[in-house]
Simulated scan of single mutants.
Amino acid sequence: MSPPLLAETLAETTRAEPRGTPVVEPGINRQYLDADPERWKGVFEREGRELFDRRHEIIDALQLTPGDSVADVGAGTGLFTMLLAERVGRAGRVYAVDISPTFIEAIQARAAASGLDNLVPIVNSQQTVSLPANSVDLVFIADTYHHFEYPQQMLDSIRKALRPTGRLALIDFRRLPGFSSGWIMRHVRAGQGQVIDELEAAGFTLVATVSGCKTNGFKFYRQ
């Protein structure tokens, strides 16, 4: 089956009523719902931001092969979406997943301008990644997990989307008292130990840690 064309209709999930109590203040995500992609591109894709400076190392660490199917959850302005789409090639597929319609529209335009036709756009909710079941080899989440309002439900939906041998790659801020900045301590709700506990409770197992990042932690999980 060939990858869908970029012109495919934007997939937007039906907004269900939230179940349970969010673990973060919902206001943390309001600024992204009608975001200006160009403004945020200047924030996310700038020299000096660790994720941007080390983007090629990060892509290499994922050990993707042509034909893989990948979901970039919290795709933002598309920094990693573009790199992932290039790495998996025309035989592969990349789902750009974000709660922001304007981010997803901008990623579509960016991919079209780059001649990438292996991208599937998805506007998701805070409770599901809205991916087809058993559809991806890798779910990639960079500096987004701490924005999950309903992490348990999101992790459940990620597990359903992963193929039996699928992996979850998670990058997020290190939250360490006495080490992390005041902004991180206020902005990020959980440290490494709690995040690992949450993922293990959802059925994931930590299999590898990529070291060398000062601000961010980078880990791989399997079901």
Rank of each mutant, 00 (worst) to 15 (best):
Y95M: 05
T102M: 00
H146K: 03
I58H: 14
S2R: 06
S125A: 06
L116C: 13
R222D: 08
I58A: 15
E105W: 07
A133T: 13
I107M: 12
A71N: 01
R186M: 09
G217M: 11
W183R: 11
K219L: 12
Q31T: 05
P151W: 09
G178K: 03
F220K: 12
T77M: 12
T205P: 04
A61S: 10
A85I: 02
A113H: 04
L64M: 11
L162C: 07
E12Q: 13
Y32D: 02
R49W: 08
R15F: 03
A111Y: 09
R30P: 02
A7H: 12
A113Y: 04
R167V: 01
R30V: 10
W183G: 02
A11S: 10
L5I: 06
L62N: 02
V207C: 00
E45P: 13
T144E: 07
E25N: 12
M82F: 13
W183D: 07
D143M: 06
H147G: 13
L10S: 06
S125F: 05
R174H: 07
I196P: 03
A61H: 03
R55P: 09
R87V: 09
A113C: 02
V195Q: 14
P101R: 07
L6W: 06
N29S: 04
K160S: 12
Q194E: 14
K214P: 00
G166L: 12
E200M: 14
P101H: 04
V23I: 15
G76M: 09
A201Q: 11
F52K: 13
Q126L: 05
L170K: 04
D137V: 09
F103G: 09
P101T: 01
